[in-house]
Design a protein around this nucleic acid. Sequence first.
DNA 1: TTAAACTTTCAGAAATAATTGAAAATATAG
DNA 2: CTATATTTTCAATTATTTCTGAAAGTTTAA
Lengths: 168, 168
Amino acid sequence: MKLVEAKEKFIQLWGALGSSWGINRTMAQIHALLLISQKPLSTEEIMENLSVSRGNVNMNIRELMNWNLVSKELIPGERREFFSAEKDIWEVAKRIARERKRREIQPLIQSLEQLQVIEETKKNPEAQAFLSTVAQIQHVVSKMDHAVDTMIKAEEHQLFGLLVKLLK
Amino acid sequence: MKLVEAKEKFIQLWGALGSSWGINRTMAQIHALLLISQKPLSTEEIMENLSVSRGNVNMNIRELMNWNLVSKELIPGERREFFSAEKDIWEVAKRIARERKRREIQPLIQSLEQLQVIEETKKNPEAQAFLSTVAQIQHVVSKMDHAVDTMIKAEEHQLFGLLVKLLK
DNA sequence: TTAAACTTTCAGAAATAATTGAAAATATAG
DNA sequence: CTATATTTTCAATTATTTCTGAAAGTTTAA
């Protein structure tokens, strides 16, 4: 397989993966493209490379910046904006985890809290069972929340960090 | 808030959560309904409760059974089929993790493998950078894969297990 | 200033995903 | 068997999400 083909396949793969985890396909593809690009790319270049419209690139790039996965690069002497992605994959994973935690886990924890304020007494077995289920979910979710915190704080094993540095 | 309201809200919440993680809303709602139902429910009952069609219930129940989250219950003297959900939330989490691993992580690992067979030599810096990115992703993905394995094997902390037993 | 270069917005169009509902298939009771 | 209850399938419809493209907005250079 040629490198260009492999890159193309990588972009498709990343896009499909995003889809099945609730992330818009084009957003994931732009991310993939920037991940494997040696230099920052302009909106124009992204449009051409992925055959998508200017508006689409603009919206998804903004969203990628909200996720802290992509940043604007100012190139001296260039008027246009260029974009590049965080290349350290461990860092990428941490940022995605951090963002999903903020956007989904934390609101979930809040919502579950509210479900527990019900009028029926705990002597009502139906109410008791419901509260027990909600409490179990809260417990498991907060465990995952903590696990994500641990992961975010954790550094990769030295060997891997070293390897990355050598290859970069 | 009344119990019925809380149950309704819970079903909506679970449905919305599913949506944002790539799981069809109705499937998640059926799961929620069965989670908080004291007794197994028939297709008819699920249809009424969620205002969805027979075909829809049938397809999503089948998918929930594929995920090992719901099982068919045979009720003596009843001709219709009834369904109930696994109630232990830690077990639910493990089964979802197991299934996503099987469906998405493992194919991903395979696909990444194939991207590494490229014609360009490793002396080509572009090829080198690409291979390094793919290798990093492989590394992080396999770490997560192992983390999921660990989670699947892990038992919940005794205290929690005890608590659950007391409340059940 | 002014005008060209570039970015952003967003209503409508297109693509994708989910749902319906009725017909076909299957299972069970008599 | 035959009739009836129940489940399954799937083409057509509906709902949802994503994308386009052109107009409006903004920035910069001269």
